[in-house]
Every structure is written in structure tokens, then in C-alpha cells.
Nucleic acid binder design. Sequence first.
DNA 1: GCAATTATTCAACATAAATCGAACAATGTC
DNA 2: GACATTGTTCGATTTATGTTGAATAATTGC
Lengths: 127, 127
Amino acid sequence: METKTATTIFEVLTSETRLAVFRLLVKYAPDGLVAGEIALMLDIPKTNLSFHLKNIVHSGLASMEREGRHTRYRANIPLMLETIAYLTAECCTGNPDQCRNWRVESGVAPEFPPTCCEGENRNAENT
Amino acid sequence: METKTATTIFEVLTSETRLAVFRLLVKYAPDGLVAGEIALMLDIPKTNLSFHLKNIVHSGLASMEREGRHTRYRANIPLMLETIAYLTAECCTGNPDQCRNWRVESGVAPEFPPTCCEGENRNAENT
DNA sequence: GCAATTATTCAACATAAATCGAACAATGTC
DNA sequence: GACATTGTTCGATTTATGTTGAATAATTGC
């Protein structure tokens, strides 16, 4: 995953409103919801919601599809999983062994397959 | 993890500069680096780096410690792992079975222990 | 075709974040 | 104690983001 892609996705998650929208779309996956339903459920003005939805779709974290006069939005869960994998890889950069230990110690996903920890060794200081 | 905590962490990752700093700290974990070294390695003006470091430390993703006239920064990797766990849980909210399928299909961490997928069912539409 | 519905775009304003140079505080060296 | 070193804070500027109401586009039902 490109750094630029990753930061764009994180930007989506930065806003509590957008995070709430995404969580809602995940909850209603795979059917998704139309804009009006989201606005109603989260009590957000339509114009504001449109702004945020555009943002989310642009990042790739959701897809949009016209459906009559409605617009249906669906969460892109595989992309979120890729993001998680990216983040995990970043955490292990150059420190596969330590990372494994940390994960065991912190009790967080110690069995998580170390795709990020096997041989990868990207340079962290890009210019 | 609190939603507020999570968004604060994502905010850190939003900036390519901060992401680069964090990656560097991970690479040099667990010893970390002092501010000057980071500024040199990433070619960032000191004032600007201070601004971003403050931001990172505030989120909890790094710790700072005075060391003579230097300030040493260290990545908080367990917190990042918690964040990853949070994100995974968000992805599964209300859809544990689908999530498992998606993960298998996308080839992303299919064996990841489903702590997020077992019985958890938080409501996504908070007010 | 006309009115109602649904959602987006636009323009204006408000708020927040990033960047930089200069001034400041703290520490170590002689 | 005076001076160099290291980092942070401050203030000003620039840039980006969030929010809102009014106008617009697209679609449905009569």
C-alpha cells in the first residue's frame, strides 16, 4: 500500500463523524445504506453528510451506487483489512523479533500471521 | 479503546511527516532517537519537528524523555497494536461471520484471532 | 409536464492545522 | 560565569477542513 493511500484512509478516520458513518456502513454490510438513512440514523445535515461521504468514497473506504433517486453506500472492508495489514507492517519495520515479543506481551494478536515480520525490511526514512 | 483516543491516533497518521517520524521511531526501537537525529534523518526544520513530535506524544504513540540536553523519543508499539485491534473490531461490528469470510477472501490475516469477532456487538450509531 | 423527493454542488463563513523565523529555556563545556 | 548546543515555545502567516443554507440536478409518481 502506498503511503499516500494510507494517509488518505487515516484522514477519513480522523473525523468522528466519518468514523461513525463508516462503522454504520460496516454494521449494515454488505447491503449498505442510502444517504438519507445515514443522515437520519446519525442526525447529520444532508449537505454535511454529502461532504463526508464524498471524502470516504474518495479514500476508497466506501463505494457509492445510484439506485433510483437514492445513492447507496457500502463499506469496502477488504481495503480496511489491507490498511490494518499496512499498519501492522509499519509497526514491525526493521524489528520483526521485537514486534513479535511486544505483541505477545501486550496480549494483542500474538498469533497474527507475521507476513509483516518475515524478511520485510523497507527503509523508514524516505525523502 | 475510546473513539476519541482512536481518532487522535489516526490524526497522527494523517500527516506524511508524522507517519515518517513514527516509522523511523519504530525502526530504531526500542532505543528510539533524539530530536536532532530525527530532524537530520528526515530533513525537517527543528521547529516544525517539535510541533509534530508534540502531536505524536500527545496521542500516546511515542514517549519522550529528557536525556541531558537532548530529548529522546520512543515509539509506543503496544499502543499501535491496540489501535490495530480496535480497527479490526470496528471492521467486524455486527458482522463477525462476514468479516471472517472477507478476511479469508482478501488473503489478509485470515488466521487473526477473532477477539473482535466473538460475541462483540457494539452499536455503531452512537449519538 | 408538473410537483414532490432525494441527494449533490456551490458559495460563504468559521475553525483548525502546518510552517517558519525569532526569541526563550535548559543543559553541558571550558 | 560566559558561551555553545539542543530543543521548545511564541507569534504571524499560509493553507486546509468543516459547516451551513440556498440553488441545482436527477428521479419518481401522478
